[in-house]
């Protein structure tokens, strides 16, 4: 089945089994290995992508479901070599250790800030509660999102 969708700003069409998982299509067919898989069952958030701007789990979606949708992966957040403010904040504030949860965490944070541009620390924690990190203890991730929300605020 041919599936048309928008991926990181470009319209594409792929020929694939529509029941394959989106995470597999991204990683195996499209080479976008920034999207990680860690539990395969929706319990960790490592495979988070944005679908029409909303954070969703690519391990619990099949290809047919993204037909006509706008998909953003971690690779799509970098625009013309410039990192997204959330990505920059993650680097500057030490929110990255092993980095395997990072792409999903960043995308969850981007969606959180879209819905709530100035969240408090507890709101940030709730907004990221679908993403497990085993290295950082979350604190520097919260710091980073807080800083990113300040930076975005300055621009407004």
């Amino acid at each position: 089945m041919k599936i048309h969708f928008r991926l990181n700003g470009s319209d594409i069409a792929i020929e694939t089994d529509p029941c394959r998982r989106v995470v597999d299509i991204l990683r195996e067919d499209l080479g976008l290995t920034g999207t990680k898989e860690s539990c395969g069952s929706g319990e960790c958030g490592a495979c988070t992508i944005l679908v029409d701007g909303e954070s969703r789990l690519s391990c619990l979606m099949v290809a047919g479901q993204i037909s006509g949708r706008k998909i953003t992966t971690i690779e799509g957040l970098v625009s013309q070599g410039e990192m997204h403010p959330v990505q920059k904040a993650f680097v500057d504030h030490g929110a990255v250790q092993c980095g395997f949860c990072t792409p999903g965490m960043v995308l969850a944070a981007v969606d959180l800030l879209r819905r709530n541009p100035h969240p408090g620390r507890q709101e940030i924690r709730r907004g990221l509660s679908g993403n497990i990190c085993r290295c950082t203890g979350y604190q520097k991730i919260v710091d980073a999102v807080e800083a990113a929300s300040r930076d975005t605020g300055d621009k407004e």
């Binding site: 929706g42 958030g45 988070t48 969703r56 789990l57 969850a108 969606d111 709730r126 679908g130």
Partner: peptide, 9 residues
Amino acid sequence: LGSPQVRHM
């Protein structure tokens, strides 16, 4: 219920 991602889906 679930996580933010699960609530979106």
